[in-house]
Design a binder for these strands. Sequence first.
DNA 1: CGAGGCATTGAGTCTGATCAATTTGAGTGG
DNA 2: CCACTCAAATTGATCAGACTCAATGCCTCG
Lengths: 235, 235
Amino acid sequence: MSTDICALCPVREHALCSCLSDEERVVLAGFCQRRRFTAGETVMWAGDESRICANLQSGVLKVVAATTDGREQIVSLVYPADFVGEPYATETAFTVTALSDAELCTFPRLLFERFLEEHARIENLLLQRTFKALNEARARMLTLARLSAGEKVASLLLEMAAQAGRCRCQLGLSEPVTFDLPMTRGHMADVLGMTIETVSRQLTKLKSAEVIVLSGARTVTIVDGNALKGRTMAA
Amino acid sequence: MSTDICALCPVREHALCSCLSDEERVVLAGFCQRRRFTAGETVMWAGDESRICANLQSGVLKVVAATTDGREQIVSLVYPADFVGEPYATETAFTVTALSDAELCTFPRLLFERFLEEHARIENLLLQRTFKALNEARARMLTLARLSAGEKVASLLLEMAAQAGRCRCQLGLSEPVTFDLPMTRGHMADVLGMTIETVSRQLTKLKSAEVIVLSGARTVTIVDGNALKGRTMAA
DNA sequence: CGAGGCATTGAGTCTGATCAATTTGAGTGG
DNA sequence: CCACTCAAATTGATCAGACTCAATGCCTCG
């Protein structure tokens, strides 16, 4: 039964558990619980007791840091096959919310910790992923602190194009690429540490410069990828 | 011989390796190499091949992200007993430089990886530390993106006071606390994503409000810790 | 005592936030 | 199929906070 569940898993090949043998997978599946969240629903609240870890199967989640007076910053976007949650933490550090409808494969934290300890390969992979997440967070610190509004928006566009291209096969920068933005202007602003208005103005500027084409609010075509990259200036 | 080295290690009790048995420590010490760096010297360069990991024994390091055109952001401060480097990464992600004279206990990356795989306890602890670093980076993202200059400086002052207090025993916020800033205005600006001038102006403002006293450029007394905390506003 | 790096202070500018008014567009129900 | 609704997005005008440029002051260490 449990192996059947994994057979249908859309991220079977890419999630952390892809390193497991069939037998190990049976053990893990034995205490996993699939859960669905609708867009806007919160998966875990900052400050709450940390009870679960999970793999994202479909949809997109945001990890949000907030001040006491309500200012918010998206500190990470979680895509399918990504891991969410923090083993060994008693308290949840940041609120995690579904940006779109999402499906998670959740594990009780304590059982997952036990599993990690008994399966060195998966623990090792989680370590590598966590370092990768750390590098991403640090790279974004540079973006947040030192790039101009225009540079921030250009960077995010390229990033989202790359993410979109991870599914469909991606062409180079010389060819026009069309894709749907996976988030609203408001979310883009929350990721980049700016306001909705400024994001919108920068997109308009890119449109006027004929670097991109906006077809409706959500669909973008990157006409001149090199020009867009030139507006980035980050390493 | 190797155990003697560790016996003199100033961070023996707090570094990653504190979880090891004497026998394990001998193995690890077998391929460690102690190295000294003078203030300003760079320990590893972003983009270079990743050859070492290390524990910091004394001094303070900075981890720096930079744009191609020279803008810089300090993405992490490394204190004694902290771990530096990235196992399993072929390339160094960020430049690491000594802020003060520093002593490192370095390990060749590949050997350290092998050691991790054979010693689950230490790998487990490294995982936990990496998650902690990730949480810190994410918390700082909020600071960089959403706090005002005044809030940023107040936060950093409290953080540095806490760090200073980790050595000497720290009093509560109601009592005045005096300590030396471990960095220049310039470094504070690099950490907070602002300019030297703005940092200086915010400190002057705090001095005028009699929240702090500045005795020379480097020594600070937090007179009214609660007022300082009140100027923070971050969660 | 002098030199040089840090730090402070001031004046002016500019980027991006704020406030406010439309416009667009997707979804709903008549 | 069209009008309606409501959220999202765009656009404009104004303002403030932080940056830039420039001058001066202050430690620290030869």
